[in-house]
């Protein structure tokens, strides 16, 4: 109450913002070039791949972007380690039982069964899902991608009994999970951060890293309370 409340606070530091830019740049390059290969027999894939310089160049772009994304991912692990070393690491993005309750509460609110919106912490369950989806993608798409990019060394690692199905399985993992990632980003991420009426045309947080305290209070009330106390700002109304 006594603390003065700023108009905005930093939600993502510079390093996190740069990581986000690297991640979405490589993601888009991978999606654009990979899509043409996944749907090679659906026109206008050939014309689309020609825009990217033909199949050979598109393949090189895809590989470079893939390695770029893996590097970004590795860098993020060091970033987390560093936060932990500086005792700045909060486990705000770890899924909790509360997230399940929030999901149920949110659907009840959507359907008009409850007038109460769930009170989210620093990250909503969808944001947590979004974050961990990257880990899932790295494990499934990243490893299969590495194997597919370097098939000869990869073949040395595979046991003989796996050979009749391993390549087809790797291909499916790489291609189907990429589609999942693309559709997830297209729907959830684009909707929440671009199209939603309160952020259109985009949420500028990716550049500024800042969130207004007003928005924080509405979208992440528990985080607001943690920072400024439960009754903070009451007088303003």
């Amino acid at each position: 109450m006594n603390k003065s409340i700023p108009t905005e606070i930093e939600r993502f530091d510079l390093s996190a913002r740069i990581q986000h830019i690297c991640l979405f740049t490589t993601f888009l390059l991978l999606a654009f070039t990979g899509w043409g290969l996944k749907y090679a027999y659906v026109e206008p894939s050939s014309a689309w791949i020609n825009i990217w310089g033909g199949a050979r160049i598109a393949g090189i772009i895809h590989r470079i972007a893939g390695i770029g994304m893996l590097c970004t991912f590795l860098y993020h692990q060091f970033y987390l380690l560093n936060l932990w070393r500086k005792k700045d690491l909060r486990l705000t993005v770890v899924p909790m039982p509360k997230d399940v309750m929030d999901l149920i509460q949110n659907f009840m609110y959507y359907l008009g069964l409850s007038r109460e919106k769930p009170k989210f912490g620093k990250f909503t369950y969808l944001q947590k899902f979004d974050y961990w989806a990257v880990y899932w993608g790295m494990v499934i798409i990243g490893t299969s991608g590495l194997f597919l990019a370097f098939p000869v060394p990869a073949s040395y690692l595979f046991p003989t009994w796996s050979l009749p199905w391993i390549w087809d399985t790797l291909f499916t993992m790489h291609s189907d999970e990429s589609l999942l990632a693309i559709v997830f980003i297209l729907f959830i991420h684009f909707y929440n951060e671009h199209l939603r009426s309160d952020v259109f045309p985009m949420n500028w947080m990716w550049l500024t890293g800042k969130i207004s305290v007003e928005e924080l209070k509405h979208k992440h009330p528990l985080e607001y309370e943690r920072l400024f106390g439960k009754n903070a700002g009451q007088g303003k109304r």
């Binding site: 090679a40 894939s45 598109a58 597919l148």
Partner: peptide
């Protein structure tokens, strides 16, 4: 991959 790349015009 061989077939798809060929379809997209990969000469290799």
């Amino acid at each position: 991959f061989h077939g798809r790349k060929l379809k997209l015009g990969h000469s290799g």
